[in-house]
Design a protein around this nucleic acid. Structure first.
Length: 103
DNA sequence: CGGCTGACTCTGG
DNA sequence: TCCAGAGCCAGCC
């Protein structure tokens, strides 16, 4: 049976494929899927519950920085989770995509 | 079907 | 890398 899964789940599966210690960008995900825009990727991750098997924290914007998605708390958690994975941040919460960037 | 929204990205300054 | 404006497209009401 064909499962016309929403675009969201397609994004989730792709994010799950990101290895530990690596990060990706919204634009990258959107480009790989080729059927959505970067904003949809962020929108999809925003809809994720706190308990999920999707490493949404490994997805950041094109500058390698975490987006201030409103509340502000999640942003801090995201940075902490990435550091636990071994990712280094700049003095300005910036990640070196040349080193930690997926692909 | 149409309008609104969003954790983005690009271009120009 | 910052500010402002425009484009982007699926999901929801």
């Amino acid at each position: 049976m064909k499962r016309e899964r929403p675009l969201f789940e397609q994004i989730y599966e792709l994010v799950r494929q990101i290895p530990s210690g690596k990060v990706s960008t919204y634009g990258r995900i959107a480009q790989i899927l080729g059927t959505c825009s970067a904003q949809m990727v962020g929108f999809a991750l925003a809809a994720l519950p706190e308990e999920t098997d999707v490493p949404w924290q490994r997805v950041i914007n094109r500058f390698g920085k975490i987006s201030p998605h409103g509340h502000g708390f999640g942003t801090v958690i995201q940075k902490t989770l990435l550091e636990e994975e071994g990712i280094r941040f700049d003095l300005s919460e910036t990640v070196d995509l040349s080193v930690f960037g997926w692909f």
